[in-house]
Amino acid sequence: MTGAIVGDFAKWLGSTSLSHAIQTAGWIIPALQTIHILGIAVLFFSAVIVDLRLWGVLERDVALRNVARRFLPVIWPTVLVLLLTGSFLIIGEPRRSLLNSAFYLKMALLAFALVLTVILQWSLSAVPEFWEKDRGRRIAGRFAATLSILAWCSIIFAGRWIAYTQVG
């Protein structure tokens, strides 16, 4: 039922003139993908450096809050760029992602990773020592950091897998 609606929507989207324009000019899709990957690079690194600071691996001479304040805010405008380039990629090849479970897995993981980022950002701006108050908090912080790293890695995997699991 929903599959048919999504299928119809993908078909309609693929017939729009914008979709045709993206398909016909051969350079647009690789160019969009290049910007998309550069965005992922910025976002992934920013998230990972805060996660590694939570683990106490990198930037130990700087307070966790300062590392978070330097890198986490970068994530939001970058997400905007990713959503924008991602949307144009979908418009160009709707069936490639809209009829693809790897794409929905990626979006679910993205939602999870972003919620985690919001939690980290809010907790650290409200209470600078939030993740360092005691042993339990430090372990919780490392757990959150591990989840974050795993989520972003899975997002990159799922993203690349979209290319290999598309139907027809």
Partner: peptide, 8 residues
């Protein structure tokens, strides 16, 4: 994944 970390 690795390139994203290198470039980022």
């Amino acid at each position: 994944l690795a390139i994203c970390l290198v470039v980022g």
